[in-house]
Amino acid sequence: MRSTHNGATLVELVITIVIISVAIAGVVGAFSLIAGRSADPLNQARAVKLAQLYMDEILSQKYDDQTPQGGFPKYTGLCTIGAEGSEDRATFDDVDDYDGLSGAPSTATGAALSGYSGFSISIAVSCAGTEVGLPAAEAKRIDLDITAPGNQSFSFTAYRANF
């Protein structure tokens, strides 16, 4: 009489454990990749909202410090860039005052913006009339760079014409 034993051998158990380990490692790796990128769309949306906030503020200002309120008659001097004197953001009154503004996002009065920790902005303004088919002094280019958490970088550009 032969006796039959039901069950798995030690070799079969070791092979099963190895196969399950490899499968679990692959699944966990995929989940960690997905979880690491889940904040990307949120940061992109927040960067666009922040850019809109800054561009609306900048584009609502006068073309140049010498431009009268309302923009008429238009400024006919040379294109100048940079804040006049010791202005701070609360006293910026024309587009080129924003040149060189950088740091943590804030409101026009200098108060910190909630919900934007880890973000930073950098603004550059340049004379750029020839880029849009106008005389050099007739338009300014505003370049806004936003760095989000994780060193994601977003660049936005707008033009302000002298009208």
Rank of each mutant, 00 (worst) to 15 (best):
R46K: 15
Q44F: 12
D64Q: 13
L53D: 14
G82Q: 01
I58P: 02
K62A: 13
D96W: 07
K74S: 08
G71W: 09
T109S: 13
A124L: 10
I123A: 03
P68V: 01
D64L: 03
Y116T: 05
S60C: 08
A108G: 14
R89V: 12
F72W: 11
L101K: 05
C79I: 00
V48A: 14
D56L: 10
S86P: 02
A128W: 02
S114G: 13
Q61V: 05
V48I: 12
T91G: 03
A47D: 11
A128S: 04
S117W: 03
E87C: 04
L50K: 02
T80Y: 07
G70K: 08
Q61G: 07
D93L: 06
C127H: 03
Q44Y: 12
G118R: 01
V48R: 13
K49I: 09
S122K: 10
T109Q: 12
S60M: 10
L113V: 03
Q66R: 12
G118D: 00
S117V: 10
P73W: 02
Y54L: 04
Q52V: 08
A104C: 07
D64V: 08
P68N: 01
D65F: 11
S60I: 06
Y54Q: 03
Q61K: 15
A51W: 00
D65Q: 11
G103R: 09
Q69V: 15
T67H: 06
A45C: 05
D40P: 03
A124H: 08
A124E: 12
S126F: 04
S120E: 09
T80D: 08
D93W: 02
T109I: 11
S106W: 05
G118P: 00
S114F: 06
Y54V: 02
S126I: 05
Y54I: 01
D99E: 03
D88T: 13
I121E: 06
L113H: 03
D99P: 07
G100F: 04
D94A: 13
